[in-house]
Protein backbone atom coordinates (compact mmCIF):
# COMPACT_ATOMS: atom_id res chain seq x y z
CA UNK A 1 0.00 0.00 0.00
CA UNK A 2 1.47 3.38 -0.93
CA UNK A 3 1.68 6.27 1.51
CA UNK A 4 -0.65 8.22 -0.74
CA UNK A 5 -3.47 5.73 -0.17
CA UNK A 6 -2.81 5.76 3.59
CA UNK A 7 -3.86 9.40 3.70
CA UNK A 8 -7.35 8.45 2.58
CA UNK A 9 -7.90 5.67 5.09
CA UNK A 10 -10.65 6.32 7.56
CA UNK A 11 -10.40 4.81 11.04
CA UNK A 12 -13.87 6.13 11.95
CA UNK A 13 -15.76 3.46 10.01
CA UNK A 14 -13.99 0.64 11.85
CA UNK A 15 -14.83 2.29 15.21
CA UNK A 16 -18.53 2.27 14.34
CA UNK A 17 -18.51 -1.23 12.90
CA UNK A 18 -16.71 -2.77 15.89
CA UNK A 19 -19.47 -1.41 18.14
CA UNK A 20 -22.05 -3.23 16.01
CA UNK A 21 -19.96 -6.43 16.08
CA UNK A 22 -19.61 -6.47 19.87
CA UNK A 23 -23.09 -5.04 20.59
CA UNK A 24 -24.70 -8.43 21.17
CA UNK A 25 -22.02 -9.50 23.59
CA UNK A 26 -22.15 -6.17 25.48
CA UNK A 27 -25.96 -6.27 25.74
CA UNK A 28 -25.76 -9.83 27.06
CA UNK A 29 -23.18 -8.79 29.65
CA UNK A 30 -25.40 -5.90 30.67
CA UNK A 31 -28.49 -8.13 31.13
CA UNK A 32 -26.39 -10.64 33.04
CA UNK A 33 -25.30 -7.87 35.42
CA UNK A 34 -28.91 -6.78 35.96
CA UNK A 35 -29.91 -10.36 36.70
CA UNK A 36 -26.96 -10.81 39.07
CA UNK A 37 -27.86 -7.60 40.91
CA UNK A 38 -31.50 -8.68 41.19
CA UNK A 39 -30.52 -12.07 42.63
CA UNK A 40 -28.02 -10.48 45.03
CA UNK A 41 -30.67 -8.00 46.20
CA UNK A 42 -33.18 -10.83 46.71
CA UNK A 43 -30.76 -13.01 48.68
CA UNK A 44 -29.55 -10.09 50.80
CA UNK A 45 -33.19 -9.07 51.27
CA UNK A 46 -33.88 -12.42 52.93
CA UNK A 47 -31.38 -11.41 55.60
CA UNK A 48 -32.59 -7.83 55.72
CA UNK A 49 -29.35 -6.47 54.21
CA UNK A 50 -28.47 -4.28 51.25
CA UNK A 51 -25.58 -4.23 48.84
CA UNK A 52 -22.79 -1.91 49.97
CA UNK A 53 -22.68 1.53 48.42
CA UNK A 54 -19.48 0.67 46.54
CA UNK A 55 -21.12 -2.37 45.02
CA UNK A 56 -24.15 -0.36 44.00
CA UNK A 57 -22.06 2.34 42.38
CA UNK A 58 -19.93 -0.07 40.43
CA UNK A 59 -22.70 -2.49 39.48
CA UNK A 60 -25.88 -0.55 39.44
CA UNK A 61 -25.32 2.86 37.90
CA UNK A 62 -26.34 1.90 34.40
CA UNK A 63 -29.45 0.04 35.43
CA UNK A 64 -31.22 3.10 36.83
Amino acid sequence: MSDFILLYLDPGTGSLIVQAIIAGFLALAFYFKLAKNAVTDWVLGLFGKKRTIEEEISNDESSQ
Binding site: Q19, I22, A23, G24, F25, L26, A27, L28, A29, F30, Y31, K33, S62, S63
Partner: peptide, 8 residues
Protein backbone atom coordinates in the same frame (compact mmCIF):
# COMPACT_ATOMS: atom_id res chain seq x y z
CA UNK B 1 -28.61 -2.28 26.60
CA UNK B 2 -25.55 -2.68 24.37
CA UNK B 3 -24.71 1.00 24.90
CA UNK B 4 -24.92 0.54 28.68
CA UNK B 5 -22.88 -2.66 28.33
CA UNK B 6 -20.29 -0.66 26.40
CA UNK B 7 -20.04 1.87 29.26
CA UNK B 8 -19.71 -0.97 31.82
Amino acid sequence: AAMMGLMD
